[in-house]
Design a protein around this nucleic acid. Structure first.
Lengths: 229, 229
DNA sequence: CGTGCAATTGAAAGTACTCAAGCCACGTGG
DNA sequence: CCACGTGGCTTGAGTACTTTCAATTGCACG
């Protein structure tokens, strides 16, 4: 009865569902419940108490925070198997919201932490998961600090293709605004770059939320970095 | 004989030496040694094995990585009491280099981890330290993704003033290039912004490495965000 | 077949970057 | 003691890229 979600540290080569952040929570399932969310519905809000940890069972979620000037920064998008809320203090530092229809399992946060603290091996795993997230953030910082709009969008498309394990029919679950806020760009710039990619045959789009990347190498060349380790 | 360096989670109001990342390492001192570094000297290099953890005894260090295109991103600067190398996997993900003359204590990393794993309370602290660093990175991401050059420089100056606990004679230990690479700007832009700040009396500079901020409020207004929690 | 939201496109403006030169403090060697 | 070289900082001019503001188009839904 161990519904193990293995944690593949620093191995994104086959991370179809980004299981590198996932943690084995089988021992906690007994004390968990499931919540369903409609697109746009919030799971928790910045500043809220953080009594629970959440694991995504189905759908895509995003975490973001809103700045004083009304601008937004989407910290990251999360897919099936990923844990949310585990890296915050006792209050959530970000808002989590459903991008698509979602189902999440949740269980008491203190239980999660106590349960982990009691088992050194799990502490290690937990620490490793935090380090993975730290590493991801660093990669993202490089993007925000040192890459052009085209490079950022290319890198983002590559990430999606990679996660979904395909180069044709890759799904853009999030809006252009979400992408823009994730990449530190405006929505218009995202559109323009996508249009430029289409014109130069780097990608093809059946509709606004589905694209093919016929030549991954070319896209990687545009992105200027490769995200493998 | 407990030379405690307390960890003040999420309390930077009195973080003169950013002790929020510091960890009590008194139990490890016996198995540690001290290394001295000249400015520009590397403590470890990206890709190196990570057999040690380091605690800064004196001086200022920086961690950065270099990109394919030769550009650089300075992840962060670290002062007395802070721990380096603890948040990496078994290989360093960043290069650490002395900004000023430095002294660091170092001890075996696996010992550090095993020692921590054996004590649940310390696991918690370690996890908390990782979360603090995660939070810091997020703050920095906001800067890189959503703030103008002037806002970034203002925020950086405020951080230094805050860490050094003074508004007059604040020391810029790092070069303009380091600052630029930390803020995701060019060296020229950093200079121009500093000049603009001088002209508008937001700061005064005796020389290139020492500044006064007579009106912190005004500087905070320019930065657009305040870094308190 | 409207209505409304999201995406796209265009034109103008602004911001930060690139390249290039000048400045200044400091250390070295004649 | 001073010319010279070096490294880091500053400034200027021109350019490229991204944003802003303003329509327009496209698509899903009632």
């Amino acid at each position: 009865m161990t519904a193990l979600v293995s944690m593949k540290m620093f191995d994104r080569s086959s991370a179809r569902f980004r299981s590198d952040i996932a943690i084995d929570t089988s021992g906690l399932v007994s004390s968990s419940s499931v919540k369903r969310l409609k697109p746009g519905e919030a799971l928790y809000v910045e500043g809220d108490d953080a009594p629970y940890c959440y694991q995504i069972i189905d759908g895509v979620m995003k975490e973001y925070n809103t700045l004083e000037n009304g601008r937004r920064l989407v910290a990251d998008f999360y897919g099936v198997g990923e844990i949310l809320g585990f890296s915050d203090s006792d209050r959530h530092l970000l808002t989590a919201e459903a991008v698509t229809k979602c189902a999440v399992r949740f269980y008491p946060r203190d239980l999660h932490l106590r349960w982990i603290a009691a088992r050194p091996d799990l502490s290690q795993r937990y620490i490793a998961a935090l380090m993975t997230r730290l590493h991801r953030l660093r990669q993202h910082m490089i993007m925000l600090g040192r890459m052009s709009a085209a490079q950022r969008v290319a890198a983002f498309l590559l990430r999606l293709a990679h996660e979904q394990g395909t180069t044709s029919g890759v799904r853009l679950a999030m809006t252009r605004q979400d992408i823009a806020d994730h990449l530190g760009l405006t929505i218009e710039t995202v559109c323009r770059v996508l249009t430029a990619f289409k014109k130069s045959r780097l990608i093809e789009m059946k509709n606004a939320w589905l694209f093919d990347a016929p030549d991954i190498r070319a896209l990687e060349a545009v992105s200027g970095i490769d995200l493998r380790h």
